[in-house]
Nucleic acid binder design. Structure first.
Lengths: 242, 242
DNA sequence: CAGTGGTCTAGACCACGAA
DNA sequence: TCGTGGTCTAGACCACTGT
């Protein structure tokens, strides 16, 4: 009752999908060329490409121009843990670029500082093995950030907590999650299709004095990412329920 | 340096996009038929349809089979507030369907109850004006849920807190956020394109005794939804940093 | 019924990647 | 260079919606 006559591209996509899941096509392997597949299924190339586009949207297939269509490795999902703490993804290689700039517009609003305030930007690109897995732009008020470029090797993605040691401790982390298409730059850095949406997380960390310590703009591929947030309600909040 | 020669569909999409934003095409209006647009831009119909597909992916245009392409109303974004409390979207009409069932598989795991335990399911479809805006399946252990069907009119989407009045208070809410394509059922209930991804939030609420009170599977259209999570760190957690 | 979008074809030509 | 995917065409036919 649900589907009547599935269109050809769906039939083909279903067939390819099952061949992938049964192992006829293995992870990392190249599929036959689109022309060959079109001939095999007796359809025109646009139709076959439509079928592949379905699989691509599901994250099962990766197209590489001039080279072929590849079965993607079963996606190792990354769990982003909210609340500031917990890198949780220990085994990620992170490359960092440090830039000094001044607060403007949206950024100044997020950090609640005056326009023109000095900031330090960390652009962090984390890799899981060979493939990139997340992109983060982290902004910290200049006086809280170390002046020297940080050591490159093992840096947790959650930076802010480590920086301000003798400062007032972290009190609150607010994270806004939304979904959008990646910018062309983001798509190329993360090596994802520009049509695959990303999880965009805007994170603002505040210390006990109410000062914003960090603003982070995180971009995570939506097909490989879960985000988990745990809220523990205090006794005060609970009694306020009545 | 970024884009060399944008493909025709992008040029067309850009043109239509600007015509929409400048008001040449107004919200809710029907666009000229695809054949007319194709003639106007001097391209074939598949090319023009590709351009429209771009706008559709951005949520700017809605296609209705046999009727036309329509400019979507500027999307009123819904903010989902994590942490259990705060309906926050007061002015939503919610229709609820109540079902009794028994825990199985994943659901039993989430609620940490034995397979076969009696549960009550609330299927909540919330509307914002005419258009549906969220779908929720909420599962509550049968002994915590009222036996009679709840009054239909104003029901906050966050149900669990209201149900168990004399029970141990809520202590912790854990929410897992992921992005996926909607099932055909979800797409039709939410009246969104099956190609537009949804935010899927799995929420488990636990009371002070550690018992799981509620498991909720929420589905929200990704182009109209932000989710905000605020984590307040307790003194204990802060001192554990050192 | 007429008009709309949905699917598909059989080819052409372009752009990219590897040898 | 050659094989790959990327874009586009001009038209056919089907499926849905409203009159």
């Amino acid at each position: 009752m649900t589907d009547t006559v599935a269109s050809r591209r769906h039939v083909i996509a279903d067939d390819l999908r099952s061949q992938i899941s049964t192992g006829s096509f293995k992870a990392g392997e190249r599929l036959p060329s689109e022309a060959q597949l079109a001939a095999r299924y007796g359809v025109s190339t646009p139709t076959l490409r439509n079928a592949l586009a379905l699989l691509q949207a599901e994250g099962l297939v990766e197209k590489i121009h001039g080279t072929g269509n590849f079965v993607r490795h079963p996606l190792r999902r990354i769990t982003y843990v909210g609340g500031g703490r917990t890198p949780s993804q220990a085994a990620l290689h992170v490359s960092i670029r440090l830039t000094k700039l001044r607060a403007r517009g949206h950024l100044a609003t997020l950090l609640r500082v005056a326009t023109g305030s000095p900031l330090t930007e960390f652009r962090c690109l984390s890799h899981d093995g060979t493939s990139p897995h997340s992109l983060a732009h982290i902004y910290v008020p200049r006086d809280l950030a170390p002046d020297d470029a940080p050591a490159d090797p093992p840096w947790p993605q959650e930076v802010a907590n480590l920086l301000p040691k003798p400062f007032p401790p972290l009190a609150e982390v607010q994270e806004k999650v939304s979904v959008r298409l990646p910018t062309p730059l983001e798509a190329s850095l993360l090596r994802i299709s520009p049509t695959l949406p990303v999880l965009a997380i805007t994170r603002v960390a505040t210390d006990t004095t109410g000062r914003a310590i960090e603003a982070a703009l995180l971009v995570l591929p939506s097909d490989r990412t879960d985000a988990v947030f745990t809220t523990r309600l205090t006794t005060d909040e609970r009694s306020a329920d009545e």
